[in-house]
């Protein structure tokens, strides 16, 4: 019996009073430990699906379940994103006024109450992603690859079960892209975290165990492959 982490049930998402349909009656499940690539052309609904899975957006119809439960309120979704879901963005979305260490500490507010505990845990995470020498650098003082490593460390701050990465290598050169992907895969194996990567890149998609291809807001194909 598969251990379902996220279930998307008959979800539609329409914009502009229903004239634009981003997702159309879509259903899928994400199993614990999945390594999945979400692909498809621009406008196919990849990012919309990602936003729905983590509660940043709400479906027009249908529902999303996390571990069999539908989070009914924005507060519940906030709590899930804080403790169970890590987000990685293409454009890093780091807080420019804070140091690398402080950026990683940000999601820990409300989870780890003591400041020294937050600092200790953030230091360990930054060490894990190879930024031990950059603890007190601000994002503006880091390279693109380092910024994405920092964003990954931040996403791991509260040991999430689900890591959602929206084009995590989209702003990086090929070497940094490979390094970041390798890091994500290591973390996936190490921590058993469910990893969903939105990507246009067939090479990245080819490395995952499951490829979900969207077209016009529907699932065009759902392929499982050997890692």
């Amino acid at each position: 019996m598969p251990d379902v982490l996220v279930a998307v049930r008959n979800v539609s998402r329409a914009y502009s009073d229903g004239s634009v349909t981003a997702l159309d009656n879509l259903s899928l499940t994400l199993e614990r430990g999945d390594y999945l690539a979400l692909t498809g052309p621009s406008g196919s609904g990849k990012s919309t699906l990602l936003h729905l899975i983590c509660g940043l957006d709400q479906p027009s119809r249908g529902e999303i379940q996390f571990e069999g439960r539908h989070p009914g309120s924005a507060h519940e979704w906030s709590r899930l994103r804080s403790r169970r879901i890590g987000l990685i963005f293409q454009s890093f979305n780091l807080l420019p006024t804070l140091t690398a260490l402080e950026n990683v500490e940000v999601p820990m507010f409300g989870v780890l109450p003591r400041s020294p505990d937050r600092a200790r845990h953030a230091t360990a995470l930054l060490d894990r992603v190879g930024l031990a020498q950059r603890l007190h650098h601000r994002p503006g003082q880091l390279s693109g690859g380092e910024r994405q490593r920092l964003a990954i460390a931040r996403a791991l701050a509260n040991s999430p079960d689900l890591l959602l990465a929206d084009e995590p290598t989209g702003n990086l050169d090929s070497k940094n892209s490979r390094d970041i992907l390798a890091l994500l895969e290591e973390l996936h194996h190490e921590r058993g975290v469910t990893l969903v990567i939105v990507t246009h890149d067939p090479e990245i998609a080819g490395r995952t165990r499951r490829i979900l291809r969207l077209l016009d807001g529907r699932i065009q194909s759902d392929t499982r492959q050997e890692a």
């Binding site: 983590c54 940043l56 924005a74 507060h75 906030s78 709590r79 899930l80 994103r81 804080s82 403790r83 879901i85 987000l87 979305n93 780091l94 807080l95 420019p96 940000v106 999601p107 507010f109 409300g110 931040r154 509260n158």
Partner: peptide, 16 residues
């Protein structure tokens, strides 16, 4: 605006 969106995306509650 964007940073506040990031905080929300990282799970900060409206109250925080």
């Amino acid at each position: 605006t964007r940073e506040i969106g990031v905080l929300s995306a990282l799970g900060w509650s409206p109250r925080r």
